[in-house]
Write a protein that binds this DNA or RNA. Sequence first.
DNA 1: TTTTTTGGTTGACGTGGGTCAACGGGTGTG
DNA 2: CACACCCGTTGACCCACGTCAACCAAAAAA
Lengths: 248, 248
Amino acid sequence: MQMRATVPITVSGLKSACSQCNLVELCLPFGLSNRELNRLDELVGARRKIKRQHNLYHAGDPFEAIYAIRAGSFKTDVLLEDGREQVTGFQMTGEILGLDGISTEIHSCNAVALEDSEVCVIPYDKLEQMSHEVEGLQLQFHKVMSREIVRDHGVMMLLGSMRAEERLAAFLLNMSQRFTARGFSAQEFNLRMTREEIGSYLGLKLETVSRAFSRFQDEGLIAVQQKHVRLLEPARLKSLIQHQPGAR
Amino acid sequence: MQMRATVPITVSGLKSACSQCNLVELCLPFGLSNRELNRLDELVGARRKIKRQHNLYHAGDPFEAIYAIRAGSFKTDVLLEDGREQVTGFQMTGEILGLDGISTEIHSCNAVALEDSEVCVIPYDKLEQMSHEVEGLQLQFHKVMSREIVRDHGVMMLLGSMRAEERLAAFLLNMSQRFTARGFSAQEFNLRMTREEIGSYLGLKLETVSRAFSRFQDEGLIAVQQKHVRLLEPARLKSLIQHQPGAR
DNA sequence: TTTTTTGGTTGACGTGGGTCAACGGGTGTG
DNA sequence: CACACCCGTTGACCCACGTCAACCAAAAAA
């Protein structure tokens, strides 16, 4: 059973301070002046801790805030009545969650922590208000939303016209690139999600994901052990994605 | 060969007037007060006509404006180096094009007219500026972007976890619903796109789309002739989407 | 520690949809 | 008005991925 409190016990009283945060260049405040950054500190409310496997929000919840990931990682998914799940994305530190709720003021997907995590709560009404005042904030927020749209188009490309190995290669390279942006190794990292979650995201069954991992390993492209992945030949992985013979 | 002029000959000198437009409740100005609506008239620049098969913009073009469709319809697509195309959406009157360009200030997809069409050009810098001033405009714009994100998640669901017939059923019901919103018949309409474009959007080959159309017709769910579609049993179409046996 | 559960791998087999090919009707063009 | 091309349909065949099942390792619980 998961907690569903709107004001969960896990809320920390600490105010976040964007101006002090080392995630600025990955997060909403990117590109703001110091003066603007100080104003942002007013905007960002309390932090909130979310335990592994617990929801930050559920589909159907009223929309009140967006969230910036301070530590940890999440998945977002949508469910069909018959129980089918589609993972729509994996989010890492500095990325923004909850944008799906703006349009109808009700969240349209679930956000679930893949590990014990912490987010900064950004009340949406305050964000709206401050966007009117702070020059760069509005532009930055628009860019965050637009980036999400572009990212989604990339996933559609992947789901609509790539074969299994291409999808996994694209996924691994994307993860690598995002770890790099956070100062981690581009070649070696620990995935936070299961084969089944990867499969759901890539439109494949978990067995197919597992087999593709094994085949990559057999061909010397990567070294995998459970969630630990090492990219041995990223260039060859990259070339897998384009000019695939017999592409869909 | 397609024209690629940034200021094409097809630009009309006419200023658009949102306050006079019968598409308000489908378009960006939805929910604005009359006073706000009048301010919007300043914002919206010239109209621009796009001939069938011609691009409103190309991937790689610098981003300068977003576009509201005044008449006609479009598809957006992304291309892979090897020529594979993924249609990321079909857009109808009142819908907004170009949001993909905000994040990098370069368009990341192509927007192609499916028929002779006309758009209202909304210069982005002006929109940014006016969003600071006009109360409801910012919120409305955010909702438009958020709706796009939610829509994209729906497409991912479709591509990632539905079988061919479910995808086509979902597509037809979505078209029906959007025609209805524009005052057209929910049961009977003309598609503007080819089987190949539908296939690309749904992650299927054109032959599969054609076969699914035929099977629906055989089962008395619809009547199709070329691009003309009549939904005979929308309820049964709807039930096709959920609780499908042996779903992916 | 031992036990249980969950997650990952691998094999054998089946099938939905892709591929290739032929054909016919519409539609836009010269 | 006639030609050409594009679009849609249908059939035969094939293969990538799904399904089902067994098994093992790792992690969590007891």
